[in-house]
Write a protein that binds this DNA or RNA. Sequence first.
DNA 1: GCATAGTTCAAACGGTCGTTTGAACTGGAG
DNA 2: CTCCAGTTCAAACGACCGTTTGAACTATGC
Lengths: 214, 214
Amino acid sequence: METPVETTRERLLNVAEQRFGEGGYEGTSLRAITVAAAANIAAVNYHFGSKEALLRAAVARAMAPVNTERRRRLDQLEAGGPPTPEELIRAFIEPGLELVLRRGERGAVVARFIGRIAFDPSRRIRDLYAAESDPIESRYLAALQRALPQASPDAVAFGYMNMLGLLALHQSQALSPTPGAAGSGGAVSTEDPGKLAENLVTFLVAAFDRGLRT
Amino acid sequence: METPVETTRERLLNVAEQRFGEGGYEGTSLRAITVAAAANIAAVNYHFGSKEALLRAAVARAMAPVNTERRRRLDQLEAGGPPTPEELIRAFIEPGLELVLRRGERGAVVARFIGRIAFDPSRRIRDLYAAESDPIESRYLAALQRALPQASPDAVAFGYMNMLGLLALHQSQALSPTPGAAGSGGAVSTEDPGKLAENLVTFLVAAFDRGLRT
DNA sequence: GCATAGTTCAAACGGTCGTTTGAACTGGAG
DNA sequence: CTCCAGTTCAAACGACCGTTTGAACTATGC
């Protein structure tokens, strides 16, 4: 088996999503990234052009398989009869959690990266994430509206935003309490990605079914 | 009416929660804060000691009335019969949204500040928020467990974390879409704080009632 | 051999960061 | 008035930031 040599570009992307996921965009320096990636600082500007362009490339690479899987599931659902709310929620949540958490340690890094960037304090950074999931968003909204005809467009959008936000929070692992905190002794949902996805779907299905007024 | 002269310390706290709420901790410089507050840079270290201590003081001041109101509501609920899940959820959500959003423009700034800090990318910053709402958290968890005896402790903690996360996301206004985005044309929930609180409570009550397995 | 395009490198650029210093100002107490 | 604690100030500290430069290295094609 030939050694799959990682290019400098790949190492930069790998380290970038790890570090950006830990400290956020502003809280992570290019020097910290390039040192960890065993690359020269100038390599960032050579391969990507700027710090923000590096982030953009990392977001695009991380979101690509998630978007592909979501599109595939939506196509499949719409090929059959009109999908139920639960089927639509599954088609959104599971690609975001399972596809990314199932493959060991590295998947958790990618998930945390996506979840953090989605709710970065800076609007400009959040928009980088939004731009990557933009086209599929209106498809979900339309499908949810058809599956929930009694709910107003505002209510559907409200539910969709809550779903998106909760997913991002679990991806970013920001909901796991501080190890030394007074509350529960940890392990809220970090045990098994599959179980987390199942719990989150159940939670959201109940909320969508009876929690969307007007 | 005598002029209520703002002290330098107060102006620093006011501007800090505004700027930290916009750009996050790492993305906001002390110089940006002190210029907007018409104060000298050294005033921060004189009155607070460091940038992080300024943030800590701002978080404490912003959370104080919310925590007080939550305690008051919990006391009142536990004085009567065993509270329902809806009553507990209201006692958590409404102090976080109404108490802070009802008083005009300034309340929205405080809410955004709290919501942003609660999910700052840096663990150390998030812990500053957690430390401020620490003692009341176990009270809520215990009360929720009593109100939902059929749910496991893990499930209750899962629901509580989702509630806390969704509240913070709405407080931070991170769920309002980009003005120019493809999705809904904005106004997901920004219309009226009271309506937002009502929608969020309804959403969460449904999720707690039928969405917590095991 | 030589030329060439692609990549890496050490070093430096100007700028901004949080923090510190020591002097200047302020207003009430003795 | 003098004194003094409390506060504000301009200026500078060293460190780190993202970005740029221009030379050095690498590998492939002729």
